[in-house]
Each structure stands twice: as structure tokens, then as C-alpha cells.
Design a protein around this nucleic acid. Sequence first.
DNA 1: GCATTAATTCAAGTAAGTTGAATGTTCAAG
DNA 2: CTTGAACATTCAACTTACTTGAATTAATGC
Lengths: 399, 399
Amino acid sequence: MKPVSKLAIVGSNAERTRLHNRQVVLGLVRQHQPVGRAEIARFSGLSTQAVSNITAELEKDGFLNEAGREVRGRGLPATQYALNSGGAFGVGIEVRPEVMFGTLVNLGGETVKTKRVALKSSAPHAVSVASRKMLDDLLIRAGVKHEQLLGAGVVMPGPFGDVGLSGTGQSELMDWDGVDATQTFEKALELPVIIENDATAAAVAEKVSGVAKDLNSYCYIYFGTGLGLGVVADGQVLRGAFGNAGELGHIVVAPNGHLCACGNRGCLETYASRLSVRNHLEKSGLSVQSVKDLEKLHLAGHPDLASWLQSAAPPLSQAIGMIENLFDPEAVIIGGAMPDNLLDHLIGLLTLPSGSVARRTGRPVERVLRGASGRMAAALGGAALIIHNTFTPRIVARA
Amino acid sequence: MKPVSKLAIVGSNAERTRLHNRQVVLGLVRQHQPVGRAEIARFSGLSTQAVSNITAELEKDGFLNEAGREVRGRGLPATQYALNSGGAFGVGIEVRPEVMFGTLVNLGGETVKTKRVALKSSAPHAVSVASRKMLDDLLIRAGVKHEQLLGAGVVMPGPFGDVGLSGTGQSELMDWDGVDATQTFEKALELPVIIENDATAAAVAEKVSGVAKDLNSYCYIYFGTGLGLGVVADGQVLRGAFGNAGELGHIVVAPNGHLCACGNRGCLETYASRLSVRNHLEKSGLSVQSVKDLEKLHLAGHPDLASWLQSAAPPLSQAIGMIENLFDPEAVIIGGAMPDNLLDHLIGLLTLPSGSVARRTGRPVERVLRGASGRMAAALGGAALIIHNTFTPRIVARA
DNA sequence: GCATTAATTCAAGTAAGTTGAATGTTCAAG
DNA sequence: CTTGAACATTCAACTTACTTGAATTAATGC
């Protein structure tokens, strides 16, 4: 097991200051583009001169482009700047036991190319070799050079480390125990790599190109193999001391409820998850394998699916109330490997508790939103993590 | 209602860099004292020269003291530095409807003086005037000058803003609606002020002078008027988008369970809180007002108290499992306005779920710890927030 | 036209960190 | 006992990146 994180915060210097300010400026341009430099200066608290220098550097590096001039009232019209979407890219890679997804996303958060590769083996060497192959293919098809990549976000099944959920029957990858995944992929891809779980990645995907664009604190309920929760608080990803935060599936919502594979009773996952739909439908002899299958059943208005929705909504509502009370987010997003219209239906059935800190007047957004990234959410999220990191300053620490 | 936080991250410059590095150095000294400058340089990544300059400045400002020399093997013995506990102080103020507590805490986290004042009125003007009076009294009794104060942490009953928990019968303060509490206290105390809720304050108190000294990610279950959760993640306090994160009391632990004042059923607060003990004991005609009363009953081994403990432990265990799964903390701390031995007893009765990400091998600390700050936790926490802020760099943002 | 307003650039100034050489101290080997 | 290696510290020169104030440019309004 990893030792308790001895988070050591690192000192700053001129170089790191510049890095921070580049991120600040880039983030402000993303948020307000097209925008002039004087305005960026006002937002950031930097001098116009500093902003000028930084934008010049960012333009030289291909992150920004001039975007006309804005004449508004008197004075010299501002030269406006906008993100140069095609200037840099992030790769997202989702590794599952039998398949791997890849996504190439540009600075603007737009998906440029995607790829799906079947995996013969989920062992480290096989996966990392396949990932590089996939990356090269994506780059060639998109006409993007390796130097334009900011990094890769790899989404792998958690929980990470030596934890107490091993009996949950989660389809973990083989032979990755004790392997430094970050290093393995960094070597194979020749890129900086971030390893993340699906829920967190999906959450960040919504920030970069989905419904969370204007949110800074929100939670994302992810229907994956299990049920995960991705948390973004004040723009920062919440990982927990051991990187396993957001294990929503094994929250107990009903003492003495359904028996869960983890040994406990009443886990949320036994009511609301892909596993639970599948089990529910199997009782009627229906075998559902893919998202498409579910979508068909839902469009056909199958009664067994409807009854599952009815049974899933209350526990999920309860969990959302809990999340609202604990995290006080601007919104809760629901998404993942489920058909959009099924999720919409489910959201419609929720009865959110009225006694929650989230029940305030004049909310700018709905309490519950449906994720916009569809079933590619995780892979897209991997790339989004990279993009997000280029825009978001954070305190530099080392283990 | 406050609008959705438009978190705007601010640019950095040489001055802010120095501020950051001062905090880094101060934090490292606190953690490793007594410690030499070369060692601080290694920990922080700064050059020895920079560390020398910064320690000199910190010594001049009264934050650090030389603390002898350490001879270890060859080479010039390092001049060691340690915190100058008496060099600076933080004030903590807990405001309750009828009473106010004050604490003066030094840089080392030690409580120097405390005071209790009855409040005739809980209206803004009366409270702020009384707070200044209390502060001045604390300073005189402790022989501390106003200039030595780093700031004040004021703990007030939440939830803040216009939220949906107003029907919970929580004893809120009068006439504070729409009042800018921070400004009110800053004016009265002539100090920088942080407003915080009791649970978060108590959590930080444990970091500064309690059982969380070596923890960076942990949660604190606070028995106050209600039941709150303070969360520290990677050394940073989690507040939520509207400052109301950690509303643990109204988490539903039993669908269709006890009716709660908030209108929902099965809230954790109806099982495990001071309110719930009081109600439980009232059924037998016992009236418990103070912590002392509870302590006496517990020492006497009163059967009704024992039965409450038995009934409170399972829902609380469930909640802790949930917290572990969602936040993945290094430990969960339990404390607040309850007798220590009662809490210890309660902790002994917990049956923590085995299927939790917290159930890992080789844990350096227990999963559940009892808070060390006793019933002054909140007021102490207010001061601790100030001290903590002196040691902890964070990304500067503005609304 | 001419004053006003505002963005931008220029040039000089400043704060703070880094680097490499010099200076003390201590231990250990000869 | 002397000498040199190992470290912590300091000194002085250097570098980076931000700030400041004046100059420049380009609109608007009268």
C-alpha cells in the first residue's frame, strides 16, 4: 500500500510564477474569449504589461490566436485573443479488461478523433504497447504531431491500491498489482501521464466540454462497471488520501437491504447501476449486454425496465440528497455508460429531499443535470484532465 | 442568496511568491522543528540562500527562533530553527445564541487564555461589540498586544445563506440575515476575520493541536447543535460552492426512519446527536442540559444512556462507512460537545463496514479517532483556522 | 479639429530566487 | 596532529518576471 501521502508543498520562484500566470491567463481566455489584454489584466490582477508578455508567449507557443479588435466606446480598440483550439491536444485513454478507447481532444475541448481497440490481454506490457499503437494511429488520422500533445489521461478501473473492496467482483485488470501505471504509460507514450478513475475523468470532461463549463464545484454520478462519484471542488479534483474518493456504489442506502457482492447489505450499487439493471432484467430472461440494447428496450417502453427505473429512483434520490448535503455543489451531474434518454427518464423520476442545503431559491442551474459526454465520457475525460490541467493552476506538491 | 461563486484565480508576482514561500517554510518548521535551513531547502525545493533570507525575515517578524545547533556527522553544524510560539496569536470566537466563547491560541497551537461571555442579545451589533470587549479582555489577561494577532476565526451556526433547512428548528442567530458577518467582525475587532461553521473549525483545531497533526486528508464528525462534518482534503478545507458543505445531520440513514424536524425521515441526526440523546433520555423523564450532566450519567452507567449508545452506533457506523467511501480520508475523527469518555464508548461500539476503501492493510492510524479538543473544539477551531492559514499556502482567488 | 478615453508599448526599476565561489566547522583517515 | 572530505552557510553576481510611469496610438464626442 502507498504510505499516507506526505504531502510536501513546494516553494515557488520566478519560473513557477510564470507557469501559474500562464495558466491563469489561459483559463481567463477560455472563459471569456474573445477577450482583450487589458480585460485579462483586470480579471487576473496582473499588470497589462505582464499580460502582454504572457499572451505574446502563449501565441508564440500556439495556444492563443489574435481574434480581431473590439471597438467599444472610446479609446484604442482592444486586440482580442481567443484559444487556438488546434494548437495543442490531449489524449484520453480508457482501459477496460477487454477493450481500450482512445480520444484526441483539442484545447477547445472538442473531440477530434476517437478509436476503439480490442485487447487480447489486459496485462501491463500488452496494454501499454497497444496504447502507443492507438495513439500513433490517432495522430496520423488527425494530422497532429506528437509534439503538440500536452499529455495523456489514462482511465483505469479503480479502486487503486490494496483496499477492502476486492470481493466486489469488479472486473479489474490482470497483473497490474504493484505496477507503476503512470511510469508504464509515460514510457510507452512518451508523454506526461495522469491516471484517474472513470467517475473523476467524466466529471472533468463535463467541465471542459459539457454541462459543467461554468461550474466550479460539482459532483458527477458515473454509471460505469460500478457506480462512482467524481468530485470537483473549487475547480480542483478531489482524490482522497489514497486516490479512492468517490466510491459511491458501496454507500449503504438501505440497512438490511439487498445483499451486495462486497458483503454488505443495501449498497446503492444494488439498486442503481448497470449491474442492477442487468440483474433486474435477467429475472425476466432478458439479457442486456450493451448500451444499445438498453436504449432499444427503453424506446420500446419495456415494463421491466420501467419497473427498474421506479425502484432505482428512490435510493438514487436519497444518495443525491446526501451528496448535496455533504459537498454542497452547484449541481449534481448524472452520466456514464447509459443511454441518454434512459438517464433523462431516471432524472425525471427522482424525488429530491426538500430538506437539503441545495434547496435554495434562485438557483442559476438545476440541481441535477444529465451529462453531455455520453458513453465516451471516461475516455474523453482522460483527455479533459490534461486540458483542464493546462488551464487550472494548483499548488505544486510532491510525494 | 450568494450567487454561484465565480471563482477567479489571481495572478502571482514576486511579492505573492514570497508570501507563498514564507508559508511553505513556516509549515516545514512547524512539522519538523527544530530544523536547519539546508534541510528546509531540501524539503521545499528552494535554494539554501532563499531559505536563509526567508528564515531571517521570519525571525525578524517574530515567527521563528534559533534553536541551537545540530551536530550530526561531518560538516558545519546546522543552525536550527523552531517556531516562536509566543510570537503571534490567533483568536477564536464561537457565537451561540446565548453565549460566546473566546480562545487565544499561540503559533504553536497552544491555548493561552479562554473566556466565556453570556449574550443578552444575539443581534449583530450586540454580538460584535461584545466580541471586541472579550478580545480586549483576553489580550490584557494574556499580556498580548493587538499587533501580535494574525486574525480572528469566528464560528457561527450554519447553514449560511438562504437554504432549505430553515425548518429544522436549529437555533439560529437573530437578525443576521443579509448582514455581512465578516465585515461586521473585521470592523469591530480590527482584524482579518474568517467566518466558519463549527464542524470545519473543529476539524482544523485537530490539525493545529490535536490528533490530526500529521494528517492531510481527514473528516471530523462534530456533535454540536446538529451533526456536522468538517472535511480537510490535501490540507485544504472543503467548503462547498455556497459554504454549506458537511451537513451530515440530515443524511438519510434509514428510509422511513424517525421523523426529523427537517421534514425528512431517517436523518442521521435523529439517531446520533445531542438532540437525539436528550430526546431519548427525556422519555424516561431525565432532563440533560449540559455536557457535565451527560458525563455524570455515563460514569454512573445509566441504562438509558447505554441503550442510546446501542441505538446510535449502527447508524453512525453506516455514516462513517459512507464518509470513508466518499472522501477516502486518512482517518475519521469524532468530537464536539460530548464527554470524551462517552465518545470513546461510542467509538468502541461502532461496527465499521468491511467493504470500504478504508479497509486497507498497514494503516498508520486508526480508522476512527476521538477528537482531542473537547468542548472548546469550535472556539479553538476558530483560532486554529487563523494559525492554519499562516502555515498553509493556497491558491489565491477572489469573488 | 480638439479634448477625452482607453489599450498598448517602451523603458526603467524592483523584488525575489538561483548560482557558484568562498568560508567556517566537524569528522575521519593517515 | 595534520590534512582533506563533507556540509551548512554566506557573499556577490546574475536572472527572471512583474510593476510603474511615460509615450504612443486609435477611437469617440463636442
